[in-house]
Design a protein around this nucleic acid. Sequence first.
DNA 1: TTACATAATGACACAGAGTGTCATAAGCTG
DNA 2: CAGCTTATGACACTCTGTGTCATTATGTAA
Lengths: 208, 208
Amino acid sequence: MTSDDAKPPRPSGRPATIDPDAVAGLALDLFAEHGYENTSMEDIAKAAGIGRKSLYRYFTSKADLVWGGTEPVIEASTRAFDSFHSPGKSDGGVLAGLREATIAGVAVIPDLAVTRGRLRLIAEHPELTSRSYESLAPQREKALAFLVESGLTDSAARFVSAAYLAVTFEAWLQWAAGSEPDPTPYLLAALEVLNVPLNKAGVSQWKH
Amino acid sequence: MTSDDAKPPRPSGRPATIDPDAVAGLALDLFAEHGYENTSMEDIAKAAGIGRKSLYRYFTSKADLVWGGTEPVIEASTRAFDSFHSPGKSDGGVLAGLREATIAGVAVIPDLAVTRGRLRLIAEHPELTSRSYESLAPQREKALAFLVESGLTDSAARFVSAAYLAVTFEAWLQWAAGSEPDPTPYLLAALEVLNVPLNKAGVSQWKH
DNA sequence: TTACATAATGACACAGAGTGTCATAAGCTG
DNA sequence: CAGCTTATGACACTCTGTGTCATTATGTAA
């Protein structure tokens, strides 16, 4: 469901010989071994046996090597958003939609161990952490559209989608920092912030 | 209260001749005139009549020229957080604290027109928008400490502070995109997201 | 005034990211 | 085989960000 269906155009021309996934994996290994900033694009290209320019053709930036692989997740979330059209239940439906889309995204990830490695690398480097805003932009737009579709004001929808993205990203970081196999509990706990009003907060998220 | 009190150390040595604020203002002018990416650090240094290296001594990065001037705001917020120690009202106090800190930050900004210009530049350039995560990191830590102090779990506090930062930043962007003089209404509306549960959302943020 | 300490300044050099151009190689189709 | 399409990489370039180091300007102490 991720990439095996629809190999649409085999028009003509020379087929690619470079496997982006393999290169990204190789880059992650180098990052793990020598550190992110100590590994240049040249090093990665050399290790992959390709030219630096070819590397840039597949990954527009060094950060892209780490932040890649987001598309399938976002696509899955989008499908969940789209199949959530429910004119009847405008009550409670919004948060449920966000929850379903989030879970749907998790289900698509092929190897959570790899994702954890990537997230740990991201967490260690402010440069990469910042990139979340850009890398999650498509997701933010999808959520925004869903929220507007659900009846929220454009302004309110922007606030909620901003909070949604920030909170789920934080959940991913918390999960990556630990050793729990399943990120779902973190994500659901994060979404609770959008549910429970702070001034009537449920007992569960309070210490005392 | 911003920079006129406590000129503490005049130990010795040559005093600075460069005025960082003036340089930043000059840079913003150049960005407005020729575009952000078309203006190199060399151009800015030349226009300011200083060396490129001296420019880097005052601004660690090009983005810093735009994202500067955040310290006073964060300091004001921090003071508001600190003076909010209220052991009695653990109900409704958390959100009120976030509100007060936010407003306190606004009050400190010397020229909102300049801030609007900076934010518009930030909004136009993903590279600069992303920087929010780094630039607002101190603010996030302060909010986190306040929330933990208020009794929230560490995990929950991280979720809430992430949402708080994302939502207020989005408010600033919305304000900057428009022409309203006062950002306060945007900020308060943003904070409502943390107050009103989505499944019982108040009428005000719904279209229909 | 002279000596000294301190700190700002900028000249020079450098690694690395990211981009553009262009010639070449490799596969597919007729 | 001929021709088309596309991948590939060699080369050159700009700009960011950093490090080193000599120089200059200022304030303080003798």
